[in-house]
Structures are given as structure tokens and as C-alpha cells.
């Protein structure tokens, strides 16, 4: 691995609550090169919070602290809001779960991609248009000229997600954060979208953080995986070892999934051990 693209050390996020602060992230650390890092966990594990914290997209009332949070030398934790606006969408891009909510319903596909391109690069309008069409082709849209003129509601789920990927990747970001990018899609479309995401990220030499609740999916798609629970990283391991994980939580998650290759009478319901949350504090 070359020098890390993103380095996060002891990231903590807390929200004010009735009794002081409640922790959403309790000190997570990871480093990311030009690779695909999966973050898996169940709802409330803090996986989405981690992604948003890196982009500094958390609500202002959240208290964010970290020993370090750097994107190839830029201190993300203390960067000004103005600087963050350049970084967001420019150097870090985010692909969200549902393109229906993430795309502007009143603008055509083309104008959204062109806008995304022109905000972050010095391309002229016609140059940006050419690049937008090329980008649509890169995300395997067969008829980019036609699709470019459509509005988001005229797109199917898979098509919408391709447009979103095109829009997010056109300024050539160094880091792409994908938060459940395929959860709203049908399984038969999911493979193509992951393929496209993989291809674009590799072609541009970017790093990818892939946030998902789907263990087998992350195991197949990513290089490395962080397993999160209760705002902490339970385990970090190579993706292909996910099926042979050692941490009891990861094993329990694996076991709770109905198997596809054999019949079982009863599924194993994970027991959550409070020990998992205390071990790292000590």
C-alpha cells in the first residue's frame, strides 16, 4: 500500500441528549489507500455517521473530535467551511442510497452533471457538456444524448444510480464515499451498478469507502472490511476472510443470515455481548 489517502485516528462523534452527550462514534481509526474499504454494520452502528463525519456533513450540534482526520495531507477536521465546500464534491464525492432523493427533480440529467463538473473544474460550458456525455457513456448508458435530456423522475432506479455515479465522479475525486449505493436497487441491477462503480473508481485511481449492511456483498466487492457495532470498530480484516471472521459479532452476523446452499431449521439469533463495547475503552 502506498501512503494513505485518508487517515482517521480516534474519531469520536457525540450528540447532545437529555443526559449530557450520547456517543454515536466511540473512537474509530482507519487508514485508506487507493482501495475499496467496506464499512459494515447494522442500523445504529455508526457506519453512516463515519462517512458523513469524513465529509463534515454532520449537523452542527454534533460534537466531532479526532486525533487526526487527514485527506492526503489536508486536515479535514480543522479545514474552514469554505475549504470544505471545495473538498466536498471535488476531492471527496458521495454516492447516496436513493438517486430519487439525491438528484434535483427540476433539472435535467445533463445540466446536473455539467454543473457538478463546472463547480469543481475550470471547464468551459461546451467542454463540460462533452465531458458529461463521455461520462454517461463511461457509466454504460447506451444512448447518452437521449438520457442527458431526461429528468430524474423519468429514470429507472438503476439508471438513476448510474447518473448519480457519473455526476459524483466527473470532478475526478480522490475519495468516493458510497453509502448503501445499491440497497434501493433490485438484485439483478445491483451487479451492474457495482461493476460500474468499481470500474470508474479504479480508472480514476480513487479510494472508495463502501458503507453497507450487507455482509456477503461487501465481502465480494471490497478489499478490506471494517465491522462496526455500537459506534466502534469490532474487527478489521481482508474482505475475502469475512466468511472466516474471528470476532464473535461478525461470526454471529454471518450465522444469522439464512444460508442459500443448504436448509436449516432455525437461524442463529446474535446475542449482543456488552463486553464488545467495553473492551476497547480499557
Amino acid at each position: 500500500m502506498s501512503e494513505p489517502l485518508l487517515e482517521v485516528k480516534n474519531l469520536r462523534v457525540a450528540y447532545p441528549s437529555a443526559h449530557g452527550y450520547s456517543d454515536a462514534l466511540r473512537g474509530i481509526s482507519f487508514a485508506l489507500g487507493r482501495e475499496k474499504l467496506g464499512i459494515v454494520g447494522e442500523s445504529g452502528s455508526g457506519k453512516s455517521t463515519a462517512g458523513r463525519a469524513v465529509m463534515r456533513l454532520l449537523p452542527p450540534k454534533a460534537r466531532v473530535t479526532a486525533d487526526a482526520m487527514q485527506l492526503s495531507g489536508v486536515d479535514l477536521l480543522n479545514a474552514s467551511e469554505r475549504k470544505m465546500r471545495d473538498i466536498r464534491g471535488g476531492r471527496i464525492a458521495m454516492v447516496l442510497q436513493d438517486p430519487r432523493y439525491a438528484l434535483n427533480p427540476l433539472k435535467t440529467v445533463e445540466s446536473q452533471i455539467v454543473e457538478s463538473c463546472r463547480i469543481h473544474t475550470r471547464a468551459s460550458r461546451s467542454e463540460a457538456r462533452d465531458r458529461a456525455l463521455a461520462m454517461l457513456e463511461d457509466v454504460r448508458i447506451r444512448d447518452p444524448q437521449r438520457v442527458a435530456r431526461l429528468y430524474p423522475h423519468e429514470l429507472s432506479g438503476g439508471m438513476g444510480q448510474r447518473v448519480m455515479i457519473a455526476m459524483m465522479l466527473i470532478p475526478s475525486p480522490e475519495l468516493v464515499i458510497a453509502d448503501e449505493p445499491t440497497s434501493a436497487l433490485d438484485v439483478t441491477v445491483r451487479g451492474q451498478i457495482l461493476d460500474i462503480l468499481n470500474e470508474r473508481v479504479e480508472a480514476q485511481g480513487a479510494g472508495l469507502i463502501f458503507i453497507s449492511h450487507d455482509l456477503p456483498l461487501v465481502g465480494d466487492f471490497c478489499d478490506r472490511v471494517l465491522v462496526m457495532y455500537g459506534g466502534q470498530v469490532m474487527e478489521e480484516l481482508a474482505a475475502h476472510e469475512l466468511a472466516r471472521a474471528t470476532h464473535p459479532y461478525t461470526r454471529a452476523l454471518n450465522a444469522s443470515l439464512p444460508p442459500l446452499d443448504r436448509r436449516v431449521e432455525e437461524l442463529i439469533v446474535p446475542e449482543h455481548d456488552p463486553e464488545w463495547l467495553s473492551e476497547r475503552r480499557a
Binding site: 438484485v187 439483478t188 445491483r190 451487479g191 461493476d195 468499481n198 465480494d220 466487492f221 442459500l260
Partner: peptide
């Protein structure tokens, strides 16, 4: 039957596609 589904013993193309897509995340790999 569920056993057919598990052993990928399907007649229709669509069923096979669905099974394949559900089994592996990446269609191309």
C-alpha cells in the same frame, strides 16, 4: 421448490438470472 432454488435448478432464464445475481454480488466477477 425451495430445493430447486438452492440447487439452481431453474427452467426460466429470468429465474436463473435472479439466482445468480443473488448469489454473487458482482455479476462480472
Amino acid at each position: 421448490s425451495a430445493d430447486d432454488l438452492r440447487s439452481q435448478n431453474a427452467e426460466q432464464d429470468y429465474t436463473r438470472e435472479l439466482i445468480t445475481a443473488s448469489r454473487v454480488a458482482l455479476a462480472a466477477e
